[in-house]
Amino acid sequence: TETRTFTDEREARRFEQEARDNGKDVQVRESNGKFEVRVK
């Protein structure tokens, strides 16, 4: 599991989409204006 934290939602979404395109299981959590993207 890899976790990346972004402050920019667009960057978080781009990373999320890229991971999904690669067939990964992705979860995005938002807290305090930060976006935590977990990739399995």
Score class of each variant (00 low, 15 high):
22 N>F: 07
29 R>K: 12
27 Q>V: 13
12 A>T: 02
26 V>L: 02
30 E>N: 08
9 E>V: 06
29 R>S: 12
3 T>Y: 09
3 T>C: 15
12 A>F: 03
33 G>Q: 02
31 S>Y: 12
17 Q>K: 11
2 E>Y: 10
15 F>W: 10
31 S>M: 14
12 A>D: 03
37 V>E: 02
38 R>H: 12
25 D>M: 11
28 V>G: 02
25 D>L: 12
12 A>P: 01
27 Q>N: 10
39 V>H: 02
33 G>L: 01
3 T>V: 14
23 G>S: 03
27 Q>G: 05
14 R>V: 09
10 R>D: 15
8 D>G: 00
8 D>H: 00
39 V>I: 11
24 K>M: 14
39 V>N: 01
38 R>E: 14
25 D>V: 11
40 K>I: 15
29 R>H: 12
15 F>Y: 12
20 R>E: 03
11 E>K: 05
2 E>L: 13
23 G>T: 01
38 R>I: 15
31 S>G: 07
21 D>K: 13
25 D>Y: 09
10 R>E: 15
21 D>E: 12
26 V>I: 04
30 E>I: 14
24 K>Q: 11
8 D>I: 00
24 K>T: 04
39 V>M: 06
8 D>P: 00
25 D>I: 13
11 E>A: 08
39 V>C: 03
2 E>R: 08
24 K>L: 14
4 R>H: 15
38 R>T: 15
20 R>P: 01
15 F>D: 03
4 R>G: 06
29 R>E: 09
11 E>T: 05
23 G>V: 02
4 R>E: 07
35 F>D: 02
13 R>S: 07
27 Q>W: 12
32 N>T: 02
1 T>M: 10
12 A>R: 01
2 E>D: 08
24 K>V: 07
35 F>Q: 02
4 R>P: 06
17 Q>E: 09
19 A>P: 01
24 K>S: 10
37 V>A: 02
18 E>C: 13
34 K>W: 12
23 G>H: 08
6 F>K: 05
20 R>F: 05
24 K>N: 10
35 F>N: 02
21 D>T: 10
36 E>R: 02
17 Q>G: 04
9 E>H: 04
2 E>K: 08
3 T>I: 14
18 E>W: 14
31 S>D: 11
30 E>S: 10
10 R>K: 14
14 R>W: 08
33 G>W: 00
33 G>S: 02
6 F>T: 06
11 E>I: 03
23 G>Q: 04
16 E>C: 12
9 E>Q: 05
26 V>R: 01
22 N>H: 12
18 E>I: 09
38 R>M: 14
2 E>N: 09
33 G>T: 00
28 V>S: 04
35 F>M: 04
21 D>S: 12
22 N>Q: 15
8 D>T: 04
23 G>Y: 06
37 V>F: 00
25 D>Q: 12
23 G>K: 05
17 Q>A: 08
39 V>L: 06
18 E>G: 05
18 E>A: 10
1 T>Q: 10
7 T>N: 12
7 T>Q: 11
13 R>N: 06
2 E>W: 07
21 D>L: 14
2 E>G: 06
26 V>P: 06
8 D>N: 05
13 R>A: 08
18 E>Y: 08
40 K>C: 15
16 E>N: 00
6 F>Y: 04
10 R>V: 14
28 V>Y: 10
26 V>W: 00
22 N>G: 10
32 N>R: 03
38 R>G: 06
19 A>S: 09
3 T>W: 09
32 N>S: 05
19 A>R: 02
12 A>N: 01
15 F>G: 02
32 N>G: 10
1 T>R: 08
9 E>M: 06
29 R>T: 14
12 A>H: 00
22 N>S: 13
15 F>H: 04
26 V>E: 01
7 T>A: 10
19 A>E: 09
4 R>T: 10
9 E>W: 07
21 D>A: 14
4 R>M: 11
38 R>S: 14
10 R>M: 15
11 E>Q: 06
22 N>Y: 08
3 T>K: 09
39 V>D: 03
37 V>M: 00
35 F>W: 15
33 G>R: 01
22 N>W: 08
28 V>R: 04
5 T>L: 13
34 K>Y: 14
17 Q>V: 05
5 T>P: 03
38 R>F: 11
21 D>N: 12
19 A>W: 06
20 R>S: 05
22 N>I: 09
8 D>S: 04
17 Q>T: 07
32 N>M: 05
14 R>P: 02
2 E>Q: 12
26 V>M: 02
31 S>F: 13
9 E>L: 07
15 F>N: 03
18 E>V: 08
30 E>M: 12
10 R>I: 14
35 F>Y: 11
27 Q>D: 11
18 E>T: 08
28 V>T: 08
39 V>A: 05
35 F>L: 05
9 E>D: 03
31 S>P: 01
36 E>N: 02
6 F>G: 06
19 A>D: 01
30 E>P: 06
5 T>Q: 11
20 R>I: 10
19 A>F: 04
32 N>C: 13
8 D>A: 00
29 R>A: 09
9 E>F: 05
18 E>K: 08
34 K>E: 10
21 D>V: 09
6 F>E: 04
12 A>M: 07
26 V>F: 02
21 D>M: 13
27 Q>E: 15
40 K>R: 13
15 F>Q: 03
5 T>M: 12
21 D>H: 10
16 E>T: 03
18 E>D: 09
34 K>I: 15
27 Q>Y: 12
6 F>R: 04
16 E>M: 10
37 V>I: 07
36 E>T: 04
6 F>M: 04
19 A>K: 03
27 Q>M: 12
35 F>A: 01
25 D>P: 05
32 N>I: 00
12 A>W: 00
33 G>V: 00
37 V>R: 00
23 G>W: 04
7 T>L: 12
32 N>D: 12
6 F>A: 05
39 V>G: 02
28 V>K: 03
16 E>K: 00
15 F>K: 03
12 A>S: 03
11 E>F: 00
6 F>V: 05
31 S>H: 14
40 K>A: 13
38 R>V: 15
25 D>H: 12
37 V>H: 00
10 R>P: 07
16 E>V: 09
17 Q>C: 13
8 D>E: 07
22 N>K: 13
13 R>W: 03
20 R>V: 07
7 T>R: 05
21 D>W: 08
30 E>D: 06
27 Q>P: 01
5 T>D: 08
8 D>W: 00
31 S>E: 13
11 E>L: 07
34 K>D: 05
38 R>Y: 11
1 T>F: 14
10 R>F: 14
24 K>A: 11
38 R>P: 02
9 E>R: 03
4 R>W: 11
25 D>K: 08
25 D>S: 12
36 E>V: 10
7 T>K: 06
30 E>Y: 11
30 E>V: 14
13 R>H: 08
23 G>L: 04
18 E>Q: 10
14 R>I: 14
27 Q>F: 12
19 A>L: 10
8 D>L: 00
30 E>R: 09
3 T>P: 04
3 T>D: 08
20 R>Q: 06
12 A>L: 04
26 V>Y: 02
5 T>V: 15
1 T>K: 07
27 Q>A: 10
33 G>Y: 00
10 R>Y: 14
32 N>V: 00
13 R>T: 06
5 T>E: 13
13 R>Y: 04
7 T>M: 09
28 V>F: 15
5 T>S: 12
17 Q>W: 05
14 R>E: 13
34 K>M: 14
22 N>A: 15
15 F>I: 04
20 R>D: 02
1 T>P: 09
20 R>N: 04
11 E>H: 03
8 D>K: 00
6 F>I: 05
23 G>D: 04
14 R>D: 09
3 T>E: 09
16 E>L: 06
7 T>D: 15
8 D>V: 00
37 V>Q: 01
8 D>Q: 00
22 N>M: 14
2 E>S: 10
34 K>S: 11
17 Q>N: 07
25 D>T: 11
36 E>A: 02
26 V>Q: 01
18 E>H: 09
4 R>Y: 15
31 S>R: 13
28 V>Q: 02
25 D>R: 09
11 E>M: 06
7 T>G: 10
35 F>P: 02
10 R>T: 14
15 F>P: 02
40 K>M: 13
32 N>K: 08
27 Q>K: 07
2 E>T: 11
27 Q>H: 11
22 N>E: 12
11 E>Y: 00
3 T>A: 06
13 R>F: 03
28 V>E: 01
3 T>H: 06
33 G>H: 03
28 V>A: 04
